[in-house]
Amino acid sequence: MTNREQPAATDNVLTIDGLNVSYGKVPALRDVRLTVPRHQITAVVGPSGCGKSTFLSVLNRLTDLVPDCRVSGRVEFDGIDVLSRGCDLFALRRRVGMVFQKPNPFALSIRRNMELPLREHRVPATEIDGIIECSLRDVGLWDEVKDRLDKSALKLSGGQQQRLCLARALSLDPEVLLCDEPCSALDPLSGEIVEDLISRLRERITVVIVTHNLAQARRLTDNVAVFWQQNGAGTVVEAGSVDDVFENPQSEIASAYVAGSRG
């Protein structure tokens, strides 16, 4: 634990300040403040319904898909104002990838699943095959699927599907990867594989992972943000390095919540 570098104060890839989100008139998040250090894994933990997933989908503006969703505040990604109207979503979502709770491969072949986003981003055709192989190797799926790249991705097992989605996201070479409980819909063994993969990503990219599994947060991540529902909306009640939050929580809520992981 101690061999992990402490984040330098300036090198935050994401800075979230005063973020409010509501669906119609129902508030979901209120006054969220958080910084995400580069090349580390940050866990977002908290009970269900406290806005963890909403928080994640603000970071790549997926909230735009929800018609009556209102977002205000400030989210800065590498100097870019994410919530501004002029923000180039195409570039943002390429640099900030996402893996969902439920594996969501498209109802296409494995190859087309990988190809579609690459083509969309105008990756030269000559490079595509190489990138596909490389990404699938990254997630340890290449040897399992190299002989059936043209078969439907829906025929893969749940764990394989999730790794395919991970490979698909990684093929665009993102700087940040958002993971929304990526292991919770998988069987324990597949979950462990995916967890290992995410843990190894730390060298290359920044990961923000939503989880309700405190043990996972503890063994996998560098930083933890505890979300809690207060006055009808989710907010961050405690954030810091994983050791600080688990061993020496400052707030009562956080200490009660993480106590579950000690016991």
Binding site: L65, F100, N104
Partner: peptide, 26 residues
Amino acid sequence: PNELRAGAAALAISRASTLRHLLLPA
């Protein structure tokens, strides 16, 4: 299902391609 739309948007696939390759076939 909406997951399809979210998945495509998260990969920055344009609305037009999402429609042509994913939604209309479905």
